[in-house]
Design a protein around this nucleic acid. Sequence first.
DNA 1: TGACAATGACTGACCGGTCAGTCATTATTG
DNA 2: CAATAATGACTGACCGGTCAGTCATTGTCA
Lengths: 240, 240
Amino acid sequence: MSSSPTTPESRPAARRRSAKAASAKAPRPALPEAGVPKPPSSRAERTLERRQAIIDAAMDEFIARGYAATRLDDVARRAGVAKGTIYLHFKDKEALFQELIRTALVPLIGRLAAPPPSGGSVRAALEGFAETFAREVVSTRRGDIVRLIVAEGARFPAIADFYYREVVSRGLAGMRALIELGISSGEIRQQGLAQFPQIVVAPALIAVIWQGLFGRHAPLDAIEMFRVHLDLIFGERRTK
Amino acid sequence: MSSSPTTPESRPAARRRSAKAASAKAPRPALPEAGVPKPPSSRAERTLERRQAIIDAAMDEFIARGYAATRLDDVARRAGVAKGTIYLHFKDKEALFQELIRTALVPLIGRLAAPPPSGGSVRAALEGFAETFAREVVSTRRGDIVRLIVAEGARFPAIADFYYREVVSRGLAGMRALIELGISSGEIRQQGLAQFPQIVVAPALIAVIWQGLFGRHAPLDAIEMFRVHLDLIFGERRTK
DNA sequence: TGACAATGACTGACCGGTCAGTCATTATTG
DNA sequence: CAATAATGACTGACCGGTCAGTCATTGTCA
């Protein structure tokens, strides 16, 4: 997914025909409520779908251009919707942006709250986390979102706060619990680590940022880096 | 230095009278070339000074608002200069931005190329690095610059490339050398570390980003974090 | 050295394009 | 056929970039 246009000035006139045609020129379905492919019947359903289309389009545009440089005309076009429609769903550009971030983070939150270190070792848990993160965040849309937050967060205190409360503090708390588990079980030597779970997570963020800035020229083997980092925390090898 | 305005929309109409008065209404210096405080005589000198004033002002504005949202009118006002003057020194907004980044990085480059691990231990060298970094980068203008690059880099391939060539690759190379030194001297266990110097540097970047996004609500004790991280790399305590 | 000319740094009004947000009009639907 | 949803032309502010004109400084010459 990682997108990287040329320069802020160059407007590639990217266009996008998109879904619009689907709901517009459909040649009158014969049967009322038959197996019509696209039109999702219910008015409310359609509304929800449009709202989502707008959010999706906005995500693409905000990721590609940043907040200030994104034009709502483009968002509308990409969503297959008129500009005015955006304002039926969101108060203004900023509200759309915030809602977008909020929405995008929900699944991420779930993923962080979910995996309790049930049976296996702490190292196994962290290996799982690293593997999942490398596969599903670094170099994916989710990574783009993280970068977007890092890039714009300072200008949007509300977003930074939200991100801190909902993701960072929870994520770090979970990580801290895991570390303490590892310390008490003897897997982890370094006591101080519990005080700075950031250290354990650091390479993950590095990987995301690296991918965005230098990925094209100097790709980074995130998985391997994570492995080395875990070796550092738990002591040499172990797997295989 | 770390600045954090409210929202991109809110234009604080910050104004700034600034230096202009100094060179304009100065009441005719009595002695020609005496110890006159402000007026820097030579035309060329003055020009250079103005150029620098523009760069300084631009740095403040770009850091506070990001590239796209920064208005050259504001930069001019802050520099105590007319808008047109900017274009006597820089081709356009983007050229100013790039020059700014370039200029800001020069001292950083020097600092990275400078400290060869002459006498002491590798750990001492890294402790020195961490201390310097915490004091002179995190929470300073330099940190703001790093954040600016992280935020805008993806939209400016030229800047990302420059940053990679001049700072990142050199910095990592130096760090790798240091790590290898530590490995051969037995100070560092983890062999794999030489392959990913990023791991050693990661907490530093984390600290910079953290300070920018969450610093106000949840300050981070960077020094202490660095210490824990070094303990992780070299094994428990040692200092004192 | 003092008067005059040449220079070019600096100014700021102005222009053209852009874009967030509005709203009268049109289409859809229950 | 209301009521609701959607449209897209329009507005007005905003901003990057230009350029004709100003004036302090520097150079020249008698």
